[in-house]
């Protein structure tokens, strides 16, 4: 019983970590690829309007997310990922 409780807590913590891991990985990819400052990478920040990305940068970002989180983002979904927050939400929902 004691054991089980411990496992439940552990699992909860891991999931929490996974969630924040995704957000922090997304942020660090954006910082790396767009050469922006970490504090500019707010959830509302738009890649093109706020973070200086052009159309090729945006394609590269999506590809980096696919690589990092080992998934394939269909084009019609990728079109809807235009802000940092949208990227995190999509990846938290879809990353394995």
């Amino acid at each position: 019983m004691h054991h089980l409780k411990f496992l439940v807590i552990l699992r909860f913590k891991l999931t929490q970590n996974n969630m924040s891991d995704i957000a922090s990985k997304v942020r660090s990819i954006i910082v790396d690829k767009l050469g922006v400052d970490e504090n500019e990478v707010t959830p509302e920040a738009s890649f093109t309007n706020d973070l200086g990305a052009d159309s090729l940068d945006t394609v590269e970002l999506i590809m980096e997310f696919e690589k990092e989180f080992n998934l394939s983002i269909p084009d019609d979904q990728a079109e809807n990922i235009q802000t940092v927050g949208q990227a995190i939400t999509y990846l938290e929902a879809n990353a394995k």
Binding site: L56, D57, V59, E60, M63, K67
Partner: peptide, 9 residues
């Protein structure tokens, strides 16, 4: 194919 969008330019 996972060519980088900057590959050509």
């Amino acid at each position: 194919p996972k060519f980088n969008p900057f590959f050509v330019p």
